[in-house]
Computed example of a mutant assay.
Amino acid sequence: MIKNLLKGSNVFLTSFKEEHLNYLEKWYNDILFLRNFDVTAAFPKSLEELKSIIKNSKESSDKFIFAVNSIRQNKIIGITGFENILWNNGTATIYIGIGDDDFRGHGIGQESLYLTMEFGFQELNFHRIQLTVLSYNTPAIKLYEKLGFKKEGTYREFIHRDGIRYDMYLYGILRSEWKLNTKY
């Protein structure tokens, strides 16, 4: 039987559509979201800037972007995908951001990230998936470790926020480790 790789019990992943942009703009104007999602300055972005980012992602050969949608509410609640894909090496950097506050802390991120990983390993034939996370983002670190990512390194004092320097961690998972950790 063929499995729907992009659908779980609570969320499904779709292409990022024009109607999703208003949600993305709201999240990109939420400084707390930005400070966990990105390492650049948490500067709000306009609708036009976001359109350009999404267009660039869709036209690129080394990026994939998905909208994370709630099955029950049938609305976008986050984004996930891959960037920095090195096809010849079978490696990619994964990312996720649950923008809707009501869906954080309920396992939605775990299911969404698992579906993204499954797509990467099963459909795109990746050998390795990696990510970076800031040391103060403990909920994300717990999620990544729960899904089998291994801490591989530390970029010491990588980012400056609120007068404090924070480390950024590098995590990775190999296809063989993911197969052992399959939960869904």
Rank of each mutant, 00 (worst) to 15 (best):
R128C: 04
G109T: 06
L134W: 00
G120S: 01
S112R: 02
Y144Q: 06
I98V: 03
I164K: 15
L147G: 09
I98S: 00
R161W: 05
T138H: 13
I108H: 10
G120I: 02
R161P: 02
I94L: 03
Q122F: 05
L143R: 14
I96S: 04
R128K: 15
E118P: 03
S112A: 15
K142V: 13
D102W: 01
Y136R: 12
E152R: 13
Y155F: 11
E118R: 10
T132M: 15
R104G: 10
I108R: 01
G163T: 02
A140H: 04
D101P: 02
T132F: 11
L115A: 00
E145R: 14
G105N: 14
R156S: 03
Y155D: 01
I159S: 09
E111L: 01
K151G: 09
I96R: 07
G97C: 08
I164V: 13
F149K: 14
E111N: 11
L115R: 04
I108K: 11
D100F: 08
N89W: 10
I96V: 11
F121G: 02
F158K: 10
I164W: 04
G148P: 07
K146Q: 01
S112P: 00
Q110G: 14
S112M: 10
T116G: 04
P139R: 06
D102F: 07
G163N: 02
T93R: 08
E157C: 13
Q130D: 12
E111C: 06
T154H: 09
T138G: 12
F149A: 09
G105C: 07
R104S: 09
H106N: 15
F149S: 06
I96D: 07
T132I: 04
T154P: 03
R161Y: 11
K142L: 04
N125Q: 00
T138K: 12
L143D: 11
